[in-house]
Amino acid sequence: MKFGIVVFPGSNCDKDVQTAARAVGHDADFIWHTDTSVDGFDCLVLPGGFSYGDYLRTAAIARFSPVMEPVARYAASGRPVIGICNGFQVLLEAGLLPGAMLRNTSCKFVCKPQRIRVESTRTPFTRKFRQGQVITLPIAHGDGNYYIDGETLEQMERGGRVVFRYCDESGEPTPESNPNGSLNNIAGICNNAGNVLGMMPHPERAAEGILGGADGRLLLESVAQWVQGGGKIG
């Protein structure tokens, strides 16, 4: 199992993803944003950071990086792609996932452990979780306020494409437990097929107990198991 981590100028969680992948016993290597091939990888990761400084709008420039064409083909072929934090924003800007990110309603960057409820276990990344399981993952972002038009939101909810939701300790997605104002407390979504996942929380920061939590391991183990099992969606 080998993860391919796409590095944009300004990515800064690329090495952390590699550290986490190794902590769960898998290999991971980097793909430079000007590369035109993503061959040889079993799962692509678009990591967190501030691609191109995010001065214009988060990820607005990264979507034009040459690597995004092969990433889109890879996604269309049904292979697993995950965007974390800034990587999620890249997936939105690139149109691989629907919707957009607004500033957090607090207008402040927020970094803290956050409770999240697993809403769907049908994606390659969430197979080893229990439906409704409440986990804790770190968040660290200034623009995590997910927004989309009402009609599409309803389709996504009906289609089970909301994968993670911010919640309180009992698993309730309350307004108080929403750290950024996202619609329906959305923390992560997937595409129709389920192989492209975007999420604001950082599973790679929760892959070792010594760093404050290990709930993110299951996500990496899920996709590894899926790939090793032949990678069939559904």
Binding site: A20, G48, C111, R205
Partner: peptide
Amino acid sequence: EQYDHQVGAGTV
């Protein structure tokens, strides 16, 4: 909480 205090996978 306004500072990213975890990036780098080293904050024990």
